[in-house]
């Protein structure tokens, strides 16, 4: 185990971190909150949602704290009007991108996007909402994939690839037309590679992948990847 030898300043507070830590890890270990969505402990950092961006002194660009390693004497700001404004805008864009209708969603009450909206006071979307309709894959006997609620965080892809070791899921197309695919874009029931382990539904931050007839609050296990990775280390 490496020592906490790196000294850095986060939001004016001097903190110590291991050389291998990211800014996010260092902040979290010191009780400093940085919002995240695509990030999940135990999975490779993705850097896609951009909610965890922070300001690093001397760097004109915003850095994702989930991917940026700490360095000595680094000065980080995790909380500024500018950052919070961007975070609110990102949450708005996510809410507007697909048809997120909390009242009829299986994840209502245990949805990370919903929680973030509450936390950051995103009480409406100033951009108009999209109402594009995506097919719902209900072919699998236990799971459902509802693209209408997907935020493309790719947690499911990463957990399937890195933890279950199967890589059933991936992304097809690009930009606004991106969507999650099963195998070579087949119905879930037709997948030969899927082991039906359900890890994808356990880590989905929203209600895009869920277990049939069960509220997400019962099936969600966010800590699963971290647990597995920890076990493997032993």
């Amino acid at each position: 185990m490496s020592e906490r030898t790196v000294k850095l300043v986060i939001d004016g507070r001097e903190v110590f971190a291991k050389p291998t830590d990211t800014i996010l890890k260092a902040a979290k270990d010191n009780g400093i909150y940085i919002p995240t969505l695509c990030y999940l402990e135990g999975l490779t950092a993705y850097g896609g949602c951009r909610l965890c961006v922070v300001e690093v002194k001397g760097n004109p660009k915003l850095m994702t704290s989930c991917t940026t390693p700490v360095s000595n004497n680094m000065e980080v700001i995790t909380n500024s009007p500018r950052l919070n404004k961007y975070r609110k805008q990102i949450i708005e864009l996510l809410l507007a991108e697909r048809t997120h209708t909390c009242s009829v969603c299986v994840a209502n009450g245990s949805c990370e996007l919903q929680e973030l909206a509450t936390r950051f006071g995103v009480d409406h979307t100033s951009v108009s909402r999209n109402w594009k309709r995506f097919e719902i894959d209900m072919t699998h006997e236990r799971f459902v994939l509802d693209h209408n609620r997907c935020i493309l965080c790719t947690r499911c892809i990463r957990v399937c690839d890195e933890i279950e070791g199967v890589h059933v899921l991936d992304v097809k197309r690009r930009g606004k037309d991106s969507s999650i695919v099963i195998d070579l874009d087949e119905p879930w029931a037709a997948s030969y590679s899927c082991t039906s382990c359900g890890k994808c539904s356990a880590v989905c931050p929203v209600g895009a992948i869920y277990v049939k007839l069960k509220p997400l609050s019962e099936t969600k296990k966010k800590e699963l990847p971290e647990f597995v990775v920890e076990r493997r280390r032993r």
């Binding site: 809410l95 048809t99 209708t101 909390c102 009242s103 009829v104 909402r129 594009k132 209408n148």
Partner: peptide, 19 residues
């Protein structure tokens, strides 16, 4: 005041927009 989800987001009422 936009009062409740339907007034704020369209909510269930707006689900028909998907068709």
């Amino acid at each position: 005041i936009a009062f409740g989800d339907c007034a704020v987001t369209g909510n269930v009422v707006a689900l028909r927009n998907m068709f």
